[in-house]
């Protein structure tokens, strides 16, 4: 029985289609101005991949910041429960999940069954979210996907002490204009470091237990994943498709619970 999970994020919309427990289609698309339109587009792409039609789906579960706007979903679930459910399938040994999205970061403690034991989130402030990295990429005039690789060349982390993205921008500018300028790689490593300090500080408030996974769009940044490990002084696993974890979780919930309220 095919089911779908849709994760409507502030920047991208992710879809996973499960059929008899197997992933048969998935997509990641930039979120549209209207959440519903974007969700339909992303769903259509995943359906095409799976060779299915919308009418074949028995249940659709929506999650993410824009989940309430997806009128064709039978159910809406919080990102927390979907992330936990999703990572539990990919990496069942994970007990702490750090999810860093475009406009939020979340730390979840997960039990053996994939349930949420405790969580702490951060979504009203750009520090420690993808938006922070994006504004820094613009400032450094570097495409966002290249930041991670570049930062691996760093000799040391440049000091970026401000917690606020706006104030950190001024620090970064002064690094660039210094004589001699701070090396680009060091500045980016400093940017990643300042974000990591924030997120690890958040995580420590609820306690960090191994294994630890990093998900969300920002998890694709290898440099960021590395500084998270350095700050935690523990190994951190990044799943293959770190963006689709919540959508996968939503699809699993669709499969387990069906459309019943």
């Amino acid at each position: 029985m095919p089911v779908a999970g849709i994760d409507v994020g502030s920047q991208t919309t992710k879809v996973v289609i499960l059929n008899d427990g197997q992933v048969v289609g998935q997509s990641v698309m930039v979120s549209a101005e209207e959440a519903e339109t974007g969700a339909r587009k992303a769903l259509d792409e995943a359906l095409q991949q799976a060779g299915l039609a919308l009418s074949d789906l028995t249940t659709i579960v929506a999650t993410g910041a824009g989940r309430k706007d997806v009128s064709f979903a039978q159910k809406q679930k919080t990102s927390l429960s979907c992330l936990a459910k999703g990572i539990n399938r990919l990496l069942p040994a994970v007990r702490t999940l750090i999810d860093v999205g475009a406009e939020s970061s979340t730390v979840i403690r997960i039990n053996e069954k994939g349930g949420v034991d405790d969580s702490i989130g951060h979504d009203r402030c750009a520090s420690g979210t993808g938006a922070f990295l994006e504004s820094m990429a613009k400032l450094m005039q570097m495409p966002l996907p290249e930041m991670g690789q570049e930062s691996l060349k760093a000799q040391r982390r440049a000091e970026v002490s401000s917690m606020c993205a706006i104030f950190a921008e001024q620090e970064v500018i002064s690094h660039v204009h210094r004589v001699p300028p701070t090396p680009k790689a060091d500045i980016i490593a400093g940017i990643h470091g300042s974000m990591a300090v924030r997120i690890v500080g958040l995580a420590k408030r609820i306690g960090v237990k191994p294994e630890i996974a990093l998900t969300g769009g920002v998890a694709r940044n290898v440099g960021f994943a590395r500084v998270i490990e350095e700050e935690l002084k523990q190994k951190v696993v990044v799943p293959d498709n770190p963006q689709i974890v919540a959508a996968l979780g939503a699809a699993r919930i669709a499969q387990e619970e069906g459309g019943k309220q």
Partner: peptide, 14 residues
């Protein structure tokens, strides 16, 4: 609903 300058800026643009 935000006082974050980064988020408010993007909201103002949209």
């Amino acid at each position: 609903n935000t006082v974050c300058a980064v988020f408010a800026k993007s909201e103002a643009i949209s």
